[in-house]
Computed example of a mutant assay.
Amino acid sequence: MQGRPDSGFLQWRWKPDGCELPRFDPGTFFEIVRGKTMAFIGDSVARNHVESLLCLLSSEEMPLGIYKDTEDRTRTWYFPHSNFTLMVIWTRFLVLDEERVINGSVTGVFDLHLDKMDKNWANKLPEIDYAILSDAHWFFRKNYLYEKGKNIGCIFCGEPGIKSLDIDSALQMVIKVVLNYINNCKKCRNILTVLRTFSPAHFADGAWDTGGSCNRTHPLGEKEIDLASLEWKIRSIQVEEIKRVRPVARRRKKFEVLDVTKAMLMRPDGHPNSYWGNKWMKGYNDCVHWCMPGPIDVWNDFLIALLRRHAFADFTWS
C-alpha cells in the first residue's frame, strides 16, 4: 500500500460485461508455466506488474533471486519446484536508444533507432517462452527517430526541417518493428508474445513535475472516462499492431493483447501519490505506478485467463 493511510482502493475490482473474471490462482499458474521462462520487457511499470505477480506467486512458492544487474532494473527469479524462470528486463523504448549528452551532462533527450533492437531483451529472446511487452511512458518527451541512420521525425522538437510526430504515431512505428523482429526471430522457440496495452497516469492540477497529484479515493464510472483521449489512441494502435502481425505469424509464434487500458482509466484512486517513498525525487507525486496490493493485481487475473486459453488450445491427445 506504499504507506497510504486509506484502504478503500483495495475494495474495488474490475468486472467485465457478460462474464466472470476468476481471481488469480498461483497453483494453476505454475501448472501452466512449468518448465518455462517468462519475461516482462519494458520500463518501471513492467516491473510494477512483475512485483504484483511475485506477491501473488509467493503464497504458493518462494522464488530464488538468481540475477540482478548493478542498477537493480533487470532481474531474474527461479521457482525450483515448478522449474519456472521469471524475468523483468529493463528497456525504455524496446528499440535501441541513445541519450544525448551536452557538456558532459545527460539531457533526457533520446535518439531512437528503429532498425536496431535494445540488446537488453533481444539477446535473451531465444530463451523466452512468454514475452510480456510494454512500452509508451518514455515517449512523452523530446525524442528523435532514425531509420538506417537517417532522421525520420521527432516528438516535441518543433524544429524546422524535421518531421513532427505525434506520440501515438511514433509509438506505432516502434511496435511494428519490434513485433516484426520477434516474428522473424529464427532462434526463438515456441514463443507467445503478449503486448500489454497502455497503463494511464492520473495527474490532476499539473504534470508530474509541476505539482500534479492523484488524491481521489474512489474509481471513476464508465461514463466518466474519455475514450477519445491520447491514452485510448495509444491502446488502439497497440491492439491494431497485434491484429496486423497475427495473420503473418510464423510457425509456432503467437501474439496476444493484455488489454488493461479501460480498466485502469477508471482507477485514479489506485496510485501511491505522495506515499511512494522515493528518496531521490522528493516533492514529486507518483500517479504513474500502482499501489500493491491494488488495482494492478487485476492484470494478473487477465494474464492467467489468457494463458489458460492458450494452454487449452495447445492441448492434444497423445
Rank of each mutant, 00 (worst) to 15 (best):
S134Q: 14
I162P: 00
K150V: 14
D166H: 13
Y130T: 03
A170F: 05
V174C: 13
Y144Q: 07
D168C: 09
G161R: 00
L133E: 00
M173A: 00
M173S: 05
V177H: 08
F156I: 04
R141W: 10
L165Q: 11
C157A: 14
V178N: 08
N151L: 13
K142W: 05
K176D: 15
S169I: 07
N151R: 15
L171S: 04
D166K: 15
S134V: 05
H137M: 11
N151D: 03
Q172C: 05
I132L: 09
S164H: 10
F139H: 13
F140R: 15
I155K: 03
F156A: 08
V177W: 06
N143D: 13
K142D: 10
M173G: 08
H137E: 11
I175Q: 10
E159P: 00
M173E: 06
V177E: 15
F139Q: 03
L171C: 03
F139L: 07
A131D: 04
K142Y: 07
E147M: 13
M173W: 08
L165K: 05
E147Q: 14
A170V: 06
Y146Q: 01
Y144R: 14
A170E: 07
P160D: 12
D166M: 12
V178E: 06
Y146W: 05
G158N: 14
N143S: 15
C157T: 08
L165V: 04
I152R: 01
G153A: 04
A131W: 02
Y130Q: 04
L165S: 04
Y130H: 06
S134H: 14
N151H: 07
C157N: 14
Y146D: 00
E147N: 12
Y144F: 15
A136T: 13
W138A: 02
G158V: 00
F140K: 12
E147F: 15
K148E: 11
N143Q: 11
S164M: 07
S134G: 11
G161K: 01
E147C: 11
V178T: 15
M173C: 03
V174F: 09
K148R: 15
I155D: 01
A170L: 04
I132P: 02
G153E: 03
F156V: 05
K150F: 05
K163C: 02
V178L: 07
C154V: 12
K176F: 12
D135R: 09
K176C: 09
G161E: 02
G149V: 03
I132W: 03
P160E: 13
D135E: 11
D168R: 09
D135P: 05
F156T: 05
R141Q: 15
E147G: 01
Y130W: 06
H137I: 15
S169Y: 04
L133K: 03
D168S: 11
L145N: 01
A131Y: 02
L165C: 06
V177A: 06
Y146G: 02
I155P: 03
S164A: 10
M173R: 08
L145P: 00
Q172W: 01
G161P: 01
